[in-house]
Structures are given as C-alpha cells and as structure tokens.
Simulated assay, not measured.
Amino acid sequence: MEEIVQVVGERIRNFRKERGLSQEELAHQASLHNTYIGQLERGEKNATIESLYKITNALGITLEELFHNTQTGPKANSLEITQIISLLENKSKKDQHTLLQLLELLVNWKDNN
C-alpha cells in the first residue's frame, strides 16, 4: 500500500512541475496547505479522495489521468526509475538524447563485465 502512496505523490509532483507551479501555488489553487502538498509528493501522507479531487481540479486533470498507469505490481516503475524520469523531464530534448546515449553505454559496459 505504501508504494501506491509514493507513486501518486510522484505523479502529483510531475503534473505540478509540468504546469510550472510551486507547491505553494498548487496548495493555494487547491485550497490546501502547502506542507500537505509536500507531504503528499514525498509519499508521507495518504491523500483523501476530497484532497485528490481538489488537487486534480487545480492541475486541470481528471482523477483518471492522475491514476493512469499507477500500477504497483512487477511492471510498475520503481522509485529509482521514477526519480530518473523526474531528473530528465525538465532537460532539453538534446540533453535527454545525450543522457540516454550515456546510459546505454553504461548499461552495455555493465552487461559485458
């Protein structure tokens, strides 16, 4: 259960960053406290349905979009993969391409050792 809380928090953070909002701005628009938004994004708090509804409205998305692909089974992204995605999402396409090539080189090197 803890993993889904983490995944939902990451999804909230990703949607918020995509929209160029700070935690404070999202909290204001959702009529929630900014520390609560931070706790949700870090997976420290389990959100209520009402809070999720307010957050999705403030982000301009549906609850369905928030929970799309949030599976937590064997195919779910690990926390590390989610963190890698978060690091890369604000980089330029050129930087993403370069970092992908570096990652491929590292994986190939690791597989051959």
Score class of each variant (00 low, 15 high):
44 E>L: 11
51 S>M: 02
46 N>G: 08
46 N>M: 08
43 G>L: 00
49 I>V: 15
47 A>I: 03
37 I>N: 12
39 Q>E: 15
52 L>A: 06
51 S>A: 14
62 T>K: 04
38 G>H: 08
53 Y>E: 10
53 Y>G: 04
58 A>P: 03
66 L>P: 07
61 I>N: 03
54 K>W: 02
58 A>L: 02
59 L>E: 07
61 I>F: 04
51 S>N: 11
48 T>G: 09
55 I>K: 01
39 Q>D: 15
44 E>H: 11
48 T>L: 01
60 G>R: 07
60 G>H: 10
64 E>V: 14
65 E>T: 05
61 I>H: 04
60 G>V: 08
62 T>R: 05
60 G>I: 08
61 I>G: 04
41 E>M: 06
38 G>P: 07
55 I>E: 05
65 E>D: 09
58 A>W: 03
47 A>M: 05
48 T>F: 02
41 E>G: 07
62 T>N: 08
62 T>M: 04
39 Q>A: 15
44 E>F: 06
36 Y>W: 13
65 E>W: 01
63 L>H: 05
50 E>L: 13
37 I>K: 12
51 S>R: 00
38 G>L: 10
54 K>P: 04
55 I>M: 00
51 S>V: 00
39 Q>V: 03
46 N>C: 11
48 T>M: 00
66 L>V: 06
54 K>D: 10
41 E>P: 05
56 T>N: 00
41 E>D: 11
59 L>F: 04
37 I>D: 12
53 Y>M: 06
54 K>L: 09
65 E>Q: 11
65 E>I: 00
38 G>M: 10
47 A>D: 10
59 L>S: 07
64 E>N: 15
37 I>H: 12
57 N>M: 08
